Amino acid sequence: MTRPAAVLFDRDDTLVEDVPYNGDPEKVRPMPGAREALGLLRERGLRLGVVSNQSGIGRGVLTEADVQAVNARIEALLGPFDAWVHCPHLPDDGCGCRKPAPGLVVEAARLLGVRPEECVVIGDIGSDMGAALAAGARGVLVPTARTLPEEVAAAPHVCRDLLSAVRHALGRRP
């Protein structure tokens, strides 16, 4: 396999600590190794995107402006991303964008000017891996306390932390 053209990250519990339905930029805390991991990718010229389920919008506890403010804080702390894509729908809405559906990955790849097959998706739960698989991208799971054992067992690749996941993605060269 070749090096990816783009790396897509789940947001909560992958790039930043999960704060349920966070609309407060002051509560944003990067995950350990996030700055270094993103720096490695930027040094190599890879495109970076974020794909995130944000059902708080559909639940009425967040607004689009809240999500954008949190995303702006993430960029202030971790540097710029080339694409931000989120699903505002509820789990039972049946949309094609909510992970594990492929919509977010496909849209991020389109915005980045690459094919989904040229992307690696890094996330912390099974729906992140499901979205990668459904879109034809490669998935790398970075488990957290909320990752289920069956999600770890089913993941195509598992790494202990974000920096290891990025190194794994970069090490897949012909």
Rank of each mutant, 00 (worst) to 15 (best):
V140L: 07
E117V: 03
V166M: 02
D124V: 06
D161T: 13
E151M: 07
L163K: 12
E151H: 10
E118W: 00
R160A: 15
L133Y: 07
A131C: 06
T144C: 10
I125N: 15
M129R: 09
L162W: 13
R146T: 15
S164D: 15
V158M: 09
A155W: 03
I125T: 14
A137Q: 03
S127A: 12
G130V: 08
V142T: 04
P143F: 15
E117F: 00
C159L: 10
R146E: 13
L162H: 14
D124N: 09
A132E: 01
S164M: 10
I122A: 05
S127E: 11
G136D: 03
L162D: 09
A145M: 08
V121T: 07
R146L: 12
V140I: 15
L162K: 13
V152W: 09
I122E: 00
D124C: 06
E151W: 11
S127N: 11
P149V: 14
R138G: 04
P143M: 13
C119D: 05
G126L: 00
G139C: 12
L162V: 08
V120Q: 01
P149W: 15
A134W: 08
G130I: 13
R146H: 14
P149L: 13
E117T: 12
A131K: 01
G136W: 07
E118S: 11
D124M: 06
L148Q: 15
P149S: 13
V121L: 10
T144W: 02
L148C: 03
R160P: 00
C159S: 06
L163S: 01
G139Q: 07
L162N: 10
D124L: 06
A134N: 00
G130T: 02
R138E: 13
G139S: 09
V158K: 09
R146D: 13
D128W: 11
L133V: 14
L133D: 07
R138L: 08
R138A: 10
G130D: 03
G126F: 04
H157L: 14
T147L: 09
A137C: 11
S127H: 08
A135Q: 03
G136H: 02
I122N: 02
C119S: 09
D124T: 05
V140D: 06
S164R: 14
V152I: 15
I125Y: 05
G139M: 10
R138D: 13
V120K: 00
V152R: 15
V142E: 01
S127I: 09
A145S: 15
L141D: 04
D161Y: 14
G126R: 00
V121P: 09
I125V: 14
R146M: 12
G126E: 01
A132G: 05
T147D: 02
A145N: 04
A134D: 00
I125R: 15
R146A: 03
G130K: 06
V142A: 04
E117Q: 04
G130P: 12
E118M: 04
V140R: 07
V121N: 08
E150V: 11
V158D: 05
I125H: 14
I122D: 06
A132P: 04
